[in-house]
């Protein structure tokens, strides 16, 4: 996520107080710059940030009276967002999922990271070094165990999914904290990952073409064969799930299966 806006006290309060009290189900707004502040829009604009279930932000309205200002972060698609109220040295972070009914289970974005086998080794090593640090950066550990930055990043993604580290957007660093849930189960029970592994186990993936730029494969579905393409320009699949979400919720099980088959770090035994 990157920072999209920063408001002073007055504009923060003005924006939060102007939020609608209730909205109809599935109504989304775009939040765009207007004057010195932000306003709600119904149009997807270039600098817009999409927020569904906007009444969730009303939580900040009472706190905003005491705040110095507000920073807003969002991912490149502008789906999930984080809203930080600043109180001197303290920050209050409110993170919103893309939709009210969607959770945070990486929303599929870290599924590929969870699939990696190599990260298990690194994960155990890194976990051993967690000592409630308030700032941890993956790059700091790259030299330790002959691991690439990408591998280290994946290991931290997995730790995040397990609830063992959080990420502070304003500092751009992880921090050690442990949520009171057994989130290691995520990797075991996440349906898409499970199904992707099943596809690989059943030899349902056939690589058609593989170059440095693209990988094309066929994956057997129910009564049909899906075509998967992995490339720098973006991954795609012909299944209805991918057609509907276009990657905004992470890879579908077919793309994931092809990733598992083709990427050395993700290869299964």
């Amino acid at each position: 996520m990157e920072r999209r806006a920063h408001l002073g006290k007055i504009e923060t309060l003005r924006f939060l107080r102007a939020l609608p009290r209730s909205t109809m189900a599935k109504t989304a707004y775009w939040i765009i710059p207007a004057g010195n502040g932000l306003r709600l829009s119904q149009r997807e604009g270039e600098h817009g940030l999409r927020v569904a279930g906007i009444e969730r932000l009303r939580l900040l309205a009472d706190l905003a009276l005491l705040a110095d200002g507000l920073s807003v972060f969002a991912d490149s698609r502008g789906d999930a967002s984080e809203w930080q109220l600043h109180f001197g040295p303290l920050n209050f972070h409110l993170t919103l999922t893309a939709e009210v009914w969607r959770g945070f289970s990486g929303e599929g974005q870290v599924l590929a990271d969870l699939a990696a086998k190599e990260r298990d080794r690194l994960l155990n090593l890194v976990q051993g070094l967690l000592k409630w640090q308030s700032e941890i950066r993956p790059a700091e550990f790259v030299g330790n165990w002959d691991a690439s930055l990408e591998s280290m990043r994946r290991a931290f993604s997995a730790l995040g999914s397990r609830g063992l580290v959080g990420y502070d957007l304003s500092r751009g660093a992880y921090f050690h904290r442990e949520l009171p849930f057994n989130l290691a189960l995520v990797e075991e029970i996440h349906p898409r990952l499970k199904n992707a592994r099943k596809l690989v186990e059943n030899a349902s993936v056939r690589i058609l073409q593989r170059t440095d730029e693209i990988i094309e494969a066929e994956v057997l579905g129910t009564d049909v064969t899906h075509r998967v393409r992995l490339s720098e320009a973006g991954d795609r699949c012909t299944c209805p799930w991918h057609a509907k979400h276009q990657g905004s919720r992470g890879p579908c099980k077919h793309i994931l299966a092809v990733q598992i088959v083709t990427e050395p770090e993700l290869a299964l035994e």
Binding site: V224, T225, P240
Partner: peptide, 8 residues
Amino acid sequence: RRTGPLRK
């Protein structure tokens, strides 16, 4: 084969 999923 390629249009199978779309056809379905």
